[in-house]
Computed example of a mutant assay.
Amino acid sequence: MKKLLIFSFIGILFLTGLTVSAQFSRPISIGAGAGGTINLTDLGNVESKFAFYGELDYLITPYISVGLHGEKGTLAGNGYDSDFKNRYFAGNINGKLRLGHFLDNTNNYSYYTLEANTLSRILSNIYVGAGAGLVKNRINRHISEFYANYLASNGGELADKLGEIHFVVPLNVGVDIPFGRTLYGPQWAINVNYQHTLTFNDNLDGIKNKNNDQYGFVSLGVKYALFNRK
């Protein structure tokens, strides 16, 4: 059911954007950036670690996009004289909906992007998004005998597979801060994003207990728009 809702959300974004798709002349952008991870796992003492990403977005309208996102980083935590480190890979397909879609500026985007003030342009590019993807674990762990016994007596266990691939749902909130004004819209943007990733397999830390693991990724990046529509 959750997978159906995610793909339905992306489909609605696509269909909604068809009516105004001709207004934007730079439909494809590439981006890259880096930041820090925050894990919500069974070993609750978080050690924030580094991650970086690359992405490709297709703008259906100036304010609705679908894209591909690739990510590599590290998750780490400790507690109960135990610790883990997961050097993971992740990838997803996602959709984003920006605030500008609900403002009165999509009918003539070329005029808007030349005339709007800086604050309006930033507010228009605040977005929320969701997607579906996969995470590939590479877990190293050191589990104390005390904690292993505690898990066994409370319905938990140590995971057998430390390198498995499993399904995830990333949720995003952020802003693209455009700079450079042309008739075709801004060609560059600074991106600030928080991605919260939900898993459906309690194994980001090599420990399976009562609740599925999650992690957050706070990032700063840059985007560059490619091509012009003819």
Rank of each mutant, 00 (worst) to 15 (best):
D42Y: 03
T16P: 06
L40Y: 15
S25D: 05
S21C: 10
A22L: 10
R26D: 01
A22F: 11
V46Y: 07
I28A: 08
S29H: 05
G35K: 10
L43S: 01
V20R: 15
I10Q: 08
P27M: 10
A22V: 06
S21R: 11
G44N: 10
V46Q: 15
L13T: 03
L18I: 08
Q23R: 15
L40K: 14
T37N: 05
A34S: 12
E47Q: 14
L13G: 03
L40S: 09
V46C: 02
I38S: 09
L13Y: 00
T19Q: 14
I38C: 06
T19A: 14
T16D: 12
I28S: 01
G17E: 06
G17Y: 01
L15K: 07
I10K: 04
I28L: 09
T16K: 14
T19L: 13
G11I: 04
V46I: 07
I12G: 03
Q23N: 10
I30C: 03
I28R: 09
S25I: 10
L18M: 15
I12H: 01
I10L: 00
T16W: 06
A32E: 11
L43T: 01
F24L: 03
T19W: 15
G35R: 06
F24C: 10
L43V: 01
N45E: 13
D42R: 04
P27L: 03
P27A: 07
